[in-house]
Amino acid sequence: MKNLNRRDFLKTAALGAAAATLGTKSAKASEKLLSEDRLGVLVDTSVCVGCRHCEWACRLAHNMPSPALDYYSNPTVLKEFRRPDKTALTVVNEFENDKNPNLPIHVKIQCMHCDHPACVSACIVGALTKNEDGSVVWDDGKCIGCRYCMVACQFQIPTYDYDVSIDPHIRKCDFCTERRKEGQLPACVNICPNEALVFGKRSEILRIAKNRTKRKPDIYINHIYGESEIGGTSWVYIAGKDFNELKMPPLGKNPAPGISEAIQHGIFAYFVPPVTLYALLGTIMWVTKRRNESADKDKHDHHSDSHDHHSDSGRDPYRTSGHNTYRDSGHNTYRDSGLSTDKDTKGDNL
């Protein structure tokens, strides 16, 4: 609950104390899974020159079609703002540098590999997993293509193949899990000629990032993007310009799935609320049925040979009117008159 601000707290509290306490529990549980040694990458935007070799290496590593390396030196591509899509899991964008117009800022974007990923929390079938090494990966064998991960992602990273009907994929950076298994660096980190990308333990790269921003305040602003954004991300950024102006979304410190999971676990809470509701409705049903049956029996007592009287609420006006007719005019008259109550109140089979 510490992580929620007061307004969120008030709102969550409105959903019941159970939701709040369970939410805290689940948040703690997922924290435990995060390894101290989880990996990360530091993106130093002041070092990146925008050569886009990372884009090329990424495509190659993921068997995606790619133009020849020469194509990537074409600077006009950088003029338009691009996002990852089915042809690229990572892209580099260019931004103006107010301090030195001749040295534009280049920002590589890809999946941030959140410590508390919204996509993992959201995925209906658990096709997205947060691994112990920090990576967030997608499972081709589970995904049903519902695109809820895309709705949930606070960085708007996962992309979808809209142009195929069979076997569309959700695509995003997989932290080169396969390459790392073979002892290789992630493709982008490996090819980067300027060491704008620093790969290592997240704790270590955060230390480096802090060092750089502290030592060169003239170059960097005092903000490590990803250190605490939505609970922290594996990829972190340092830059000489406000991250908003680099089109990185401004995000709070609360993990994205926090409130949603608190609600979800509050509604379910080990199935206690649904089972309680079931029991409660069952009791109401039984009580009202008995009440109706006793009212029905009451009726039968009054006119013992009247047939086919269906159970009916004591408050029902038909019953009273039928009853009066019977009393006033006598049994035979009632039957002969055809004012049988079942005409109006007969229930169906349900």
Binding site: I124, C146, R147
Partner: peptide, 26 residues
Amino acid sequence: VDIGRFYYIWHPLIMWNGNSALFEVG
């Protein structure tokens, strides 16, 4: 109609994610 891999519509029956609101709805 809306999900990309309509032929995997049955996946939530055996692949569970209790944290997902969509799983609960499904």
